[in-house]
Design a protein around this nucleic acid. Structure first.
Lengths: 210, 210, 210, 210
DNA sequence: TATGAATGAGAATTCATTCAT
DNA sequence: CATGAATGAATTCTCATTCAT
């Protein structure tokens, strides 16, 4: 199911609804969110929602797709400023967490709501998310080609581990009220763990020989 | 455990219902799961559910609490077999992912359902989860005390980053049908990234001089 | 449907249950009352109730029948102390309201719950209640036979009007928390209205000649 | 009226539902009445009920309030046609019972359902009912001021006794299938009892010298 | 007799979606 | 395009009653 293509409707209203939905989903959660509440918050009638979106699911999916598109573009632009793959990893972490910081509600929805249930993670092929992860895998392969990252490092594992580390950190940051760490500090620490963890030529293997 | 102290009720039925709920929640997701489906699957009447649980939410919470208790006990027992904090990290990763491997449905519920924003992660003080994360922080502090882990490493960041990495990996593993990596391989790679990433005395800092 | 005839059961428990039911019905109302609450209050198991009563309705009906029997016996004994029919009317009022005063919960149930709904007032032929009303009609006829009460007074109307007057007064008395009138004062006023209202030889008719 | 201010909704539907509810409540009793049955009888969907009323209770309360308003207006208009307080009493009785005669279902609901203890008579401050009773008290005071009614008569007792008498009579009339007395005959008898009972200067006191 | 765990029919209410205006 | 009243399917939870112990 793909979202409504704005045929000849005012794109302004489409975005109003999306923005209202972001707030309502973040506040209540997807299943507790009421379409009528989104409508009220967007300043339109309930029925109007259905001129722009197929149904409630479609609103969430549109949010995710449009949101991920921005994230991907933004993060790609950031890492392209760097040539060193190891430094790209740091850039990625910073860009990711900066986006979370500046789009708390949106971040919460992507993290929490979209991965929430079978409904979305199973039935909906999450192309955009995979594309995002593959940016990381790409950096790793690039580093390996340049001999900067160990050959035995699996890009498919790094991409998930690194994303998971950032994502858990941002969940914490998003959900907690009083924040202990600056989110950029966290970005730097996490990227440093991974850079040290995967770069080539740092002597003995980690786990010993058990 | 839940409100109902199982006075003279058979604890067997309590567990039957939990096990049925695990299957149904894993299959449909919490919000799509029907209490009557859990009842049917548990081989009891709908009303019987309410002799053992306050309501549908309570079933999920009991699943989480009882499940996390087992995870914590199990993981604690595993890492206690090791004295070297760095090796404990590897043990943790292996134990965590082995549990996921052996309790797929349960793992999916803990990961996916309990993350459901408002209702559970906001209103529900997730003590058990925090206790689990603090096992990791404890290992890190231990390693720092022994001079094995760098002093500038924040245990509060490592615990979330490490858990997030494992968790994302297991989400992938749980949700994907055909599996590329052995989950134990993933455990070893991820723990190696972190061990190399945080251990003391491995030369130049990670990020270079930016 | 008639209530369970105590075959070979302990009558003590039967009364315990009735007394508990009186309290619970008075507190919650019949439909809001829970059988399990009556059981708890009576100090028996839920199932035990059904050894003494057919069902929940049967408890209410038994309360009414047993209660009315006492009321009728008591009121009959009172009016038999008097020979003058007009004075019997006053005795009736006093006895009725004294019973209400001393059995508030029971009075509330008879007034409020039993006449409450179709269920009881339509399906259940209320013999006891009619018997009670007919005590009044009997006094009126006696008074008419003695020439003390006007011949044009309809006993069937007086019995209902008089009972209704007392009953409304006692409803007020039962439901109000702070009481303005002594209930015996009310008994005397009301009986006086009716005695003056129906006795023979008091000159011009009431309503004028419209 | 109820919470829902009928903004753009058709008030016609509000009344359809009320009328359907009157029939269903009269037929089944409040607790046995099904919302879906009211909906069917009103020719609307179940959910539509909830656009006009908060819940099932609210329907009953609206019925009572709207019904009592009509009764009060109607009875006030009737007694205002008379100047003699004693004749007003007769007018009141006639108007009251005429309303019962012409609105059997509604009368039954007001009498039987609203008397339902806890929920309505205790928690719900029954202003309208008290207002109605005070019409009677007002007439009595007026009669006392003119010397037509004895000074020792308590208006607060008369109002309840007189209402109770009429109400019990109409309960009988509403619930019985074959009717012995014309309801207007009853109105005249009852008002005559009370007029004779309370008017000034009719010789010896009622109760004799007990 | 007494128990109380188990039953399962039953009902109020919600809310995504539609469609006449 | 926009509205929002109307729809009605769908679901949790309750509680009188039963019956194995």
């Amino acid at each position: 199911m793909t979202h409504n293509s704005l045929k000849n409707k005012k794109p302004e209203k489409y975005h109003n609804i999306q923005e209202a939905a972001v707030r309502v989903f973040a506040r209540r959660g997807f299943y507790q969110a009421r379409v009528s509440e989104i409508a009220r918050e967007a300043g339109v009638a309930d029925g109007t929602i259905y001129l722009y979106f197929e149904n409630k699911d479609d609103i969430l999916i549109s949010l995710f797709e449009d949101g991920m598109k921005k994230v991907i573009d933004n993060v790609r632009a950031e890492i392209d400023k760097e040539t060193d793959p190891l430094k790209k990893i740091q850039r990625f972490a910073r860009a990711h967490l900066a986006l979370v910081e500046n789009n708390k509600d949106m971040a919460e929805i992507i993290q929490v709501e979209l991965r929430q249930s079978s409904k979305f993670m199973k039935e909906y092929r999450n192309e955009k998310f995979l594309e995002y992860l593959d940016i990381i895998a790409g950096i790793v392969r690039e580093g390996q080609a340049l001999g900067l990252i160990r050959e035995d490092v699996e890009p498919g594992i790094v991409k998930r581990a690194f994303f998971g580390a950032l994502d858990e950190m941002s969940r914490f940051w998003v959900l907690s009220t009083r924040r202990k760490y600056n989110i950029q500090t966290a970005a730097d620490q996490i990227s440093e763990f991974f850079i040290r963890g995967i770069r080539a030529g740092s002597g003995v293997p980690a786990g010993g020989r058990n």
